[in-house]
Simulated scan of single mutants.
Amino acid sequence: MARRMDARTLGIGMLIGAAIGAGAALLLAPASGEDTRRLLRRNARRLYNKGSDAVADLAEDTERTARRLAQRGLKRSRRLVDEARDSVGW
């Protein structure tokens, strides 16, 4: 069964693809070695920052989802305990 890709996964994949494409373009460009290294450093820094932001967003989303699932589990557990108490006459 194929997994659904969400927008974030697609965006991260696109960023990685863009970075690889940009790196290849810079390496094949007719610029001086110093100019090429400067562009590579700048683009690497930009990609690192975007990746860090994406990871931070993903961590926040994961934490939010985990909290929501834990709350649902607690509610369900409480309901089951109440039902069990009712069934034994507590």
Results as ranks from 00 to 15, higher is better:
residue 14 M to Q: 15
residue 44 A to Q: 05
residue 54 A to T: 01
residue 76 R to K: 14
residue 70 A to V: 03
residue 15 L to K: 05
residue 77 S to V: 06
residue 28 L to V: 14
residue 17 G to M: 05
residue 41 R to K: 03
residue 83 E to Q: 12
residue 35 D to H: 09
residue 25 A to K: 09
residue 4 R to L: 15
residue 5 M to V: 12
residue 86 D to P: 01
residue 32 S to H: 03
residue 86 D to K: 10
residue 56 A to C: 00
residue 57 D to V: 03
residue 74 L to Q: 10
residue 57 D to A: 09
residue 11 G to P: 00
residue 70 A to W: 01
residue 1 M to Q: 11
residue 74 L to R: 14
residue 41 R to P: 00
residue 27 L to M: 10
residue 36 T to I: 03
residue 4 R to H: 15
residue 21 G to P: 00
residue 41 R to T: 03
residue 59 A to R: 07
residue 87 S to Y: 02
residue 83 E to V: 08
residue 6 D to C: 05
residue 47 L to N: 11
residue 85 R to V: 09
residue 20 I to S: 04
residue 66 A to F: 08
residue 68 R to Q: 14
residue 78 R to N: 09
residue 67 R to E: 15
residue 47 L to A: 15
residue 71 Q to N: 11
residue 10 L to V: 15
residue 46 R to P: 00
residue 75 K to D: 12
residue 79 R to N: 05
residue 29 A to H: 11
residue 5 M to F: 14
residue 37 R to K: 08
residue 69 L to Y: 02
residue 54 A to Y: 00
residue 58 L to C: 02
residue 89 G to A: 01
residue 84 A to K: 07
residue 36 T to Y: 01
residue 64 R to S: 06
residue 12 I to M: 14
residue 4 R to T: 11
residue 16 I to F: 06
residue 3 R to I: 13
residue 23 G to Q: 07
residue 56 A to T: 02
residue 18 A to E: 13
residue 56 A to V: 08
residue 53 D to M: 09
residue 18 A to K: 09
residue 49 N to A: 13
residue 37 R to I: 02
residue 37 R to W: 07
residue 30 P to H: 04
residue 89 G to T: 02
residue 11 G to D: 12
residue 75 K to V: 14
residue 78 R to K: 09
residue 42 R to K: 14
residue 44 A to F: 07
residue 47 L to Q: 03
residue 1 M to P: 07
residue 70 A to H: 08
residue 8 R to K: 04
residue 33 G to S: 13
residue 44 A to W: 12
residue 9 T to E: 15
residue 79 R to T: 10
residue 36 T to W: 01
residue 20 I to H: 08
residue 21 G to L: 02
residue 32 S to G: 15
residue 12 I to L: 14
residue 39 L to M: 08
residue 67 R to G: 01
residue 80 L to Q: 11
residue 68 R to E: 12
residue 40 L to S: 03
residue 65 T to D: 14
residue 66 A to V: 12
residue 31 A to H: 10
residue 23 G to F: 02
residue 51 G to L: 10
residue 55 V to I: 15
residue 12 I to Y: 06
residue 8 R to N: 08
residue 53 D to P: 00
residue 83 E to C: 01
residue 87 S to I: 10
residue 59 A to N: 09
residue 35 D to S: 13
residue 50 K to N: 11
residue 85 R to W: 02
residue 12 I to P: 00
residue 66 A to N: 08
residue 6 D to F: 07
residue 76 R to P: 00
residue 68 R to W: 02
residue 61 D to W: 03
residue 26 L to P: 00
residue 44 A to S: 06
residue 16 I to A: 13
residue 48 Y to E: 12
residue 53 D to H: 14
residue 52 S to K: 15
residue 6 D to L: 09
residue 70 A to S: 12
residue 2 A to L: 10
residue 16 I to K: 15
residue 54 A to V: 01
residue 79 R to G: 02
residue 63 E to M: 08
residue 57 D to L: 01
residue 37 R to T: 06
residue 24 A to N: 06
residue 64 R to C: 01
residue 22 A to T: 08
residue 72 R to Y: 10
residue 26 L to R: 00
residue 39 L to R: 07
residue 4 R to D: 14
residue 88 V to L: 06
residue 90 W to Q: 08
residue 64 R to L: 03
residue 58 L to E: 15
residue 22 A to I: 13
residue 73 G to M: 09
